[in-house]
Design a protein around this nucleic acid. Structure first.
Length: 646
RNA sequence: GCUGGCGUAGCUCAGCGGUAGAGCAGCGGUUUCGUAAACCGCAGGUCAUCGGUUCAAAUCCGAUCGCCAGCUCCA
């Protein structure tokens, strides 16, 4: 009998019988491993445990802790859900049912029936019954014709459409119990492995992600090998909801969204404005050190300006309609600041000695987002970019990219935020979406990649994510609900200098085109603060806290002393408030804790006598008494250092 | 924009055909208190808006606006 050599992850090689399965090999290693095994990775490809291995291979047994194992587990769970749906609603047509980052979904077409919460409960219950039967997932290879015949008979147009793209290939089916699905796999050995199930939500989703297609119903769910893990997962979801910036923003009175003003037009309340302005001050300072100069431009601009830039009419759908005067002159609420800045550059002749010129503005822009797109502060129709445009020579481009990336990194480090970096390239298959010559694009993309490599950035590439005038380095973060948002961005632009005929005189006396770098480390103040609220769960570091300290007199006998303390701190630049309400100290403390005020200064007889304050730190509790001077010094130092721990 | 869900006092929510309720917050008193909620009282709502059904609508139906989840989009 023939043998095959199996190489394990630790490098050891063992001989097994030809056609051995992952399951058999796992059992050979240990009973425990076999019990936990969900799938097997064979030469980098994830397979079912039951699939015979017929050649020398490197092999890794996948468990719940491995992405591939989870993937198979949730993929199998989607099939289990489909089986339960079919049991309740025969004739349901199935789209796709893949595993995702935190669970799985299945897109289904139920005709006139709209799923309700009760339906989900019923389906979930049936899933528990089905996994209780512990039936195996069985792989079966079919010819394309057999597969088509099956789904024609079943009457499932979506599966037939999927098969159209698989012509000529070997098709695989998976069965479990009474359910059969077209599926590339892999799957876990049997339904019994699924012990805990939660169907989370149902929402609409276009078939194949195109709004031209029919909208199907998508059920999201998550499953686990143990009930405990499900409980933990649901607890984490609840925790994440508590961080939601929309909730905290309301509780802490940071911003307000009034329908009377308009959807997606946030109002910054006094406490939120403190945060916003602290951030602006921080960045202005850093930019000043780096040779930026500030400019200010109006909120509207002549429509012709945007025709020159190319923003209009190509992006008409995402702009508010023009404001047209009686004489026919038309203005647009500015959707970006660049054209205005370009006019500042063009306002006088520029020499190569002047470059780079770095024009910075916290510029407010307006974009007509689709009605279903607005989201708290993270997606709005009016927002302020921490914008700047750097006009430089070709030989300065890489250096300028590098320093702007470094500035962006400094920003995220200051807040201890984790970001993912994306190189956003154009999509070569869709070139009409982009302006400028291919040669410019190649050059710009090469330049950002070179800088990214030289800086050893840990990036991924996003094809088709470029802006229409150039490629970008984008900095992405996730919100409390796991949604990804773009914050900082650095963009290289060879297109706008052409469109606006921007020039400088070189050392050779000839006219040359500058290159523009667009950059915004925060991205927008709104989105950044939204994410920041969630990052800190409303517990801002001292330098950002809207109220840094609150003085709490024990009784009104100490009100006068409390006023002195608060006055001294305010005088020194600390944002301090006095709680002079006629309430017990416990009540005042509770109130300030709820408002997440970093320092509570309790003052009574002892403090007044000793000229001290009893310091209580938010979430940390009583720190004991401190002289007023010591507290002030400690506070000022933490503010100055932008410390994350106080 | 699309699919579904939801709009009741500043906030969190109950009421779901017979004309509006609680807790917290607010205000007025009493209390003068040492590290997460003192006590008593008062006030507060054209039940998102507009239209319809009905003897009667917060409650049923429709439209509009807004919010939420997802999809699509995102210069």
């Amino acid at each position: 009998m023939a043998h095959i050599n199996i190489t394990f992850p630790d490098g050891t090689v063992k001989e097994f019988g030809h056609g051995s399965t992952g399951k058999q090999i796992a059992e050979h290693v240990s009973k425990g491993l076999a019990r936990e095994a969900l799938a097997v990775e064979v030469n980098g490809e994830v397979w079912d445990l039951g699939r015979p291995i017929t050649a020398d291979s490197s092999l890794r047994i996948l468990k719940w802790g491995d992405d591939g194992g989870k993937y198979a587990f949730w993929h199998s769970s989607a099939h289990l859900m489909a089986e339960a749906i079919e049991a309740h609603y025969p004739g349901t047509k199935f789209g796709i049912g893949p595993p995702i980052e935190n669970g799985f979904y299945y897109d289904i077409d139920m005709g006139d029936h709209t799923l309700t919460g009760e339906d989900l409960v019923r389906i979930e219950k049936t899933m528990y019954e089905l996994c209780g039967r512990d039936v195996p997932y069985v792989r079966e290879e079919k010819s394309w014709d057999e597969a088509v015949a099956y789904f024609k008979k079943k009457g499932d147009p979506y599966k037939l459409e999927l098969l159209e793209d698989l012509k000529g290939e070997t098709i695989t089916f998976y069965h479990q119990g009474d359910f059969t699905d077209l599926c590339y796999g892999p799957h876990i050995p049997s339904t019994g492995r699924i012990k805990a199930i939660k169907l989370l939500s149902v929402a609409g989703a276009y078939w194949r992600g195109s709004e031209k297609n029919k909208m199907l119903q998508r059920i999201y769910g998550v499953t686990f090998p143990t009930a405990k893990e499900l409980e933990e997962h649901l607890f984490r979801l609840e925790e994440a909801k508590r961080r939601d910036h929309r909730k905290i923003g309301q509780e802490l009175e940071l911003f307000h969204l009034s329908p009377a003003v308009g959807s997606g037009l946030p109002l910054w309340l006094p406490k939120g404005t403190v945060i916003r302005e602290s951030l602006i001050e921080f960045l202005r300072d850093e930019q000043r050190k780096r040779g930026y100069v500030s400019v200010v431009t109006p909120h509207i601009g002549n429509l012709e300006l945007y025709k020159t830039s190319g923003h209009y009419p190509y992006y008409k759908d995402s702009q508010f309609p023009p404001i047209v005067l009686e004489n026919g002159e038309a203005f647009l609420l500015k959707p970006m600041n660049c054209p205005h800045h370009h006019q500042i550059y063009a306002a006088k002749p520029r020499s190569y000695r002047d470059l780079p010129i770095r024009l910075a503005e916290f510029g407010t822009v307006y974009r007509y987002e689709q009605s279903g797109e607005m989201n708290g502060l993270t997606r709005v129709r009016g927002f302020t970019q921490d914008d700047a445009h750097i006009y430089c020579r070709h030989d300065q481009v890489k250096q300028e990219i590098r320093t702007t990336v470094e500035l962006t990194q400094l920003v995220f480090e200051t807040f201890g935020m984790e970001v993912r970096t994306r190189l956003s390239y154009r999509d070569d298959k869709n070139v009409e979406k982009y302006g400028g010559d291919a040669a410019f694009w190649d050059r710009a993309q090469r330049e950002i990649k070179e800088v990214a490599d030289e800086m050893k950035l840990n990036y991924f590439v996003g094809v088709g994510e470029a802006s229409f005038y150039g490629p970008k380095i984008d900095f992405m973060v996730k919100d409390a609900l796991g949604r990804t948002w773009q914050l900082g961005t650095v963009q290289v632009d060879y297109v706008m200098p052409e469109r606006f005929q921007l020039e400088y005189t070189g050392s050779d006396g000839q006219k040359h085109r500058p290159v523009i770098i667009h950059r915004a480390p925060f991205g927008s103040m709104e989105r950044f603060v939204g994410i920041l609220i969630e990052h800190f769960a409303g517990e801002f570091p001292l330098w950002l806290a809207p109220v840094q300290a609150v003085v709490l007199p024990i009784t009104d006998a100490y009100l006068e002393y409390a006023k002195q303390v608060c006055g001294q701190l305010t005088e020194a630049g600390v944002r301090c408030e006095l709680d002079e309400r006629n309430e017990k100290i416990g009540y005042k403390i509770r109130d300030s804790e709820t408002k997440k005020v970093p320092f509570m200064l309790v003052v009574g007889e002892k403090e007044m006598q000793g000229n001290t304050v009893a310091v209580r730190q938010h979430t940390k509790g009583d720190l004991g008494a401190m002289t007023r001077e010591a507290f002030l010094a400690k506070t000022l130092s933490a503010i100055q250092q932008k410390s994350l721990t106080v």
